[in-house]
Amino acid sequence: MNSFTLFKHSLFQFTDLHQAKKMSFWKVILYVIFLSIILALPITKQIFSIMQDIKNDGQKIAAKLPDFKIIDGKLDTATNVEGFIYQTNSIIFTFDPEGKRSLSDVTTDLVGNAVGLGFLQDEFVVALPNSGAADSLLGANQFEIPYSKGSLDGLNSKDLKESLDEASVPFWIKLVIFVFTLYPTFINLIINLLMITIGANLYSKIRLYNLRFLDCLKISTYCATLPVIFSSILHFINRSFDDSFLIVFVSLLIFFIAIRKEERKEPPLA
């Protein structure tokens, strides 16, 4: 018996899944990683879609940019250029060469999950949505890059437009994003499998099946295959779907079916 055979049984023949107790533990871990990859796919696709939306919205904004250049620590434009605010699905952009707005104004403009970007009179600013993720990962959700530091010297509207038109996400960045998505998915699946195993082990004790905790863990892992696949499909349809209950509940039902062929102990005599 191997993982591929058990995978097929997990889709069509639940009663043979009790043989998973004979699998090596390291093979079971590899199978958990395989299930985690299935669960991570819709989340990764969502992140890539957001990145593509930001790129497309950036190109729309670039098309509306007037001619400008950052030189000697200043935002240089024609004398008749006026500031503007332009909103897309993912970006709220501010262009203010007249000094009428500040970082706090850009932050106040934020709606939903949109990112605030702004070329102000003296600095370039970034304002991220107010969520715990930005604070925990980056230490803040607002960033200022003063032109006086010289890091943006020479930047102009023409080069910016060309860069956005040619921009693409390298494969290695996509791979890094996938790995970072896979890690929390793997941990969450481990927690769900432990919950399933606790329930499965309790059921096997009540029903007098001769199964150890580790046996229940191995069988439960393969019983979770179909719920994981269904959860992944539902995530493609509904991004906010919470899959934990579905995985735990359905996996337990499949476990109850899977161990029917297991030997049972003789009940104690009264």
Results as ranks from 00 to 15, higher is better:
M1R: 05
S3N: 02
F4N: 02
T5C: 07
T5E: 15
L6V: 01
S10E: 03
S10T: 02
L11H: 05
F12A: 07
F12Y: 12
F14T: 14
T15K: 15
D16N: 15
L17K: 06
Q19S: 11
K21V: 03
W26F: 13
W26Q: 06
V28W: 06
F34Y: 05
L39V: 07
A40V: 06
A40W: 07
Q46R: 11
F48I: 12
F48Q: 10
F48E: 11
Q52T: 14
D53E: 15
K60I: 13
A62E: 05
P66C: 05
D67W: 01
D67G: 01
D67Q: 06
F68E: 01
D72C: 00
L75A: 01
T77K: 04
G83A: 05
G83K: 03
I85P: 04
I85E: 14
I91H: 10
F95Y: 14
P97I: 08
K100W: 05
L103Y: 07
V106I: 15
T107N: 15
L110N: 07
V111Y: 13
G112M: 11
A114K: 15
A114Y: 08
L117H: 11
G118I: 08
L120M: 08
L120N: 01
V125I: 03
A127G: 05
S131R: 08
L138F: 09
Y147T: 03
S151R: 09
L152N: 05
G154W: 06
N156Y: 08
D159S: 15
D159P: 00
L160C: 06
S163T: 13
L164E: 08
E166I: 04
P170C: 04
W172T: 12
K174Y: 12
L175C: 06
V179Y: 11
F180R: 00
T181E: 04
T181C: 02
Y183P: 01
I190N: 01
I198M: 10
A200D: 12
N201A: 11
S204N: 08
S204F: 08
L211K: 06
K218H: 01
A224W: 02
L226F: 12
V228S: 12
F230V: 15
S231N: 08
S231R: 07
I233Q: 01
H235F: 14
R239L: 12
S240I: 09
F241Q: 06
F245R: 07
L246T: 09
L252S: 07
R264H: 00
R264T: 10
K265H: 11
E266H: 10
P267D: 01
P268A: 11
L269V: 15
A270Y: 14
